[in-house]
């Protein structure tokens, strides 16, 4: 009995410790984003929202925020569409060498982003192609396409084959089958792929850093802010991104995934 209480107490203590470790930096980040002073480290001088005001007044930062959204959403849409079409093709038709094609589509997942970025950069340089948000987007599709393909492909069960056949049998062509039957049936996993892909693109640094020139994404802009050392403004933008992501996550958890669980 005593031993069980001891083990149980040990478990809860461990849980608390690891949670503290996980939350420590985030808590410090958010707390000192409200610092009334120039240094985001103790002592805490008092509560102020001046750094948030500074963030919203920073036109470069706001432009980077817009760029990030643009790149994240458009590259995720492209990744989902291409990934969906490829998954449909490979799951529904028997193609020669389909294992090889699956391997090729998944391959970028196993390669470091740095190497993907470097390869693209070398090639773009050799072809004298200018760097822009477009090239960042292309790079982000390269890393997100395998993800979208894998998620959507995994959700294409064989039990849906007859449902698609029925649609075809009733006169639908392939595009109508995909638009009216397959995509609505797979909507939960397509949305999961889309949001995951948005998250990855939104947060991606190295590709965005190496493949962009004048217009940059948010992580790259934050990176350049780090050169000025510890700064409560960096805390503020970091906290904003964190809170916005968490809000989005909670909305998804309670609306989208909550609903699919019921079905």
């Amino acid at each position: 009995m005593l031993r069980r209480v001891f083990v149980s107490g040990l478990s809860w203590a461990y849980l608390a410790l690891v949670y503290a470790f996980i939350f420590l930096p985030v808590a410090v980040l958010v707390l000192f984003s409200f610092q009334d002073g120039r240094l985001p480290v103790p002592p805490f001088n008092g509560f102020s929202t001046q750094w948030y005001e500074a963030v919203f007044a920073d036109r470069k930062l706001m432009a980077a925020l817009g760029n990030s959204m643009l790149v994240a959403i458009s590259s995720s849409v492209v990744s989902c569409v291409l990934g969906f079409l490829a998954a449909y093709s490979l799951a529904r038709y028997k193609l020669p060498g389909s294992a090889l094609q699956r391997g090729l589509l998944i391959a970028p997942m196993t390669v470091s982003y740095l190497i993907i970025a470097l390869g693209l950069l070398s090639l773009l340089n050799a072809l004298h192609m200018p760097l822009s948000l477009l090239t960042v987007g292309i790079g982000h599709v390269v890393i997100n396409l395998p993800l979208c393909f894998a998620i959507i492909y995994a959700s294409m069960g064989d039990h849906q084959i007859n449902i698609e056949r029925a649609a075809r049998d009733l006169g639908a062509n392939d595009f109508k089958v995909m638009a009216l039957v397959t995509a609505p049936m797979l909507m939960p996993s397509i949305l999961a792929a889309f949001f995951l892909s948005v998250t990855f693109s939104w947060d991606e640094f190295i590709i965005a850093f190496l493949l962009s020139r004048f217009d940059v994404t948010l992580p790259v802009e934050i990176w350049s802010m780090l050169r000025s050392g510890l700064n409560p403004k960096t805390n503020a933008i970091g906290s904003l991104v964190f809170l916005a992501s968490v809000a989005l996550l909670l909305i998804l958890e309670f609306s989208l995934f909550g609903r699919t669980k019921k079905q």
């Binding site: 039990h159 007859n162 449902i163 056949r165 029925a166 649609a167 049998d169 009733l170 039957v181």
Partner: peptide, 10 residues
């Protein structure tokens, strides 16, 4: 038209 074994309703 085909009526499928598993009904294949949408």
């Amino acid at each position: 038209t085909t009526m499928f074994q598993d009904y294949a309703l949408f």
